[in-house]
Computed example of a mutant assay.
Amino acid sequence: MAQPSQTLRNRWQTLTKCVCDGARLMVGQGDYQTYADHVRRTHPDQEPMTELEFFRNRENARFGVGNTSGFRCC
């Protein structure tokens, strides 16, 4: 059986990860590891983007880069 302090520590780590992931999603920046795991699991024939490519992709999507509808924040 797990020590009470260890269980509390695990719960705290889970909570802080959820809060951080939620904050990243609010600003349009997803979690790279979640993305990479998804691509490897559901698209085994594709290589996931690098972490830098993923970051740039999310930033471009957030600010409408390459979007022909005319939206841009700045």
Results as ranks from 00 to 15, higher is better:
1 M>I: 00
1 M>V: 03
4 P>N: 02
5 S>V: 06
6 Q>A: 08
10 N>F: 02
11 R>C: 02
11 R>Q: 09
12 W>C: 10
13 Q>W: 01
14 T>G: 13
14 T>S: 15
16 T>Q: 08
16 T>G: 00
17 K>Q: 14
20 C>P: 04
20 C>N: 11
20 C>V: 12
21 D>G: 02
21 D>N: 14
21 D>T: 02
23 A>K: 05
25 L>G: 14
26 M>N: 15
27 V>L: 06
28 G>Q: 04
28 G>N: 01
28 G>M: 09
28 G>H: 03
30 G>C: 10
30 G>S: 13
31 D>L: 02
33 Q>K: 12
33 Q>C: 09
34 T>V: 08
36 A>T: 12
36 A>G: 11
37 D>T: 02
39 V>C: 13
39 V>M: 14
40 R>S: 12
40 R>A: 14
41 R>C: 12
41 R>M: 09
42 T>N: 14
42 T>Q: 14
42 T>E: 15
43 H>K: 11
44 P>T: 08
45 D>E: 15
45 D>Y: 12
45 D>N: 13
46 Q>G: 13
47 E>W: 04
47 E>Y: 07
48 P>E: 07
48 P>F: 06
48 P>N: 10
48 P>T: 07
49 M>R: 14
49 M>C: 05
49 M>K: 13
51 E>H: 03
51 E>R: 13
51 E>C: 03
52 L>I: 05
52 L>W: 03
52 L>Y: 08
53 E>N: 07
54 F>A: 03
56 R>H: 05
57 N>F: 07
57 N>G: 05
57 N>P: 01
58 R>T: 07
58 R>C: 10
58 R>G: 03
59 E>T: 12
59 E>L: 07
59 E>R: 08
61 A>P: 00
62 R>D: 00
62 R>T: 05
62 R>H: 00
62 R>Y: 03
62 R>K: 08
63 F>M: 00
65 V>C: 00
65 V>Y: 00
65 V>A: 00
66 G>W: 00
66 G>F: 02
67 N>T: 01
68 T>L: 12
69 S>M: 10
70 G>W: 06
71 F>R: 07
71 F>E: 04
71 F>H: 10
72 R>W: 08
72 R>M: 02
73 C>A: 15
73 C>Y: 13
73 C>V: 15
74 C>K: 11
74 C>P: 13
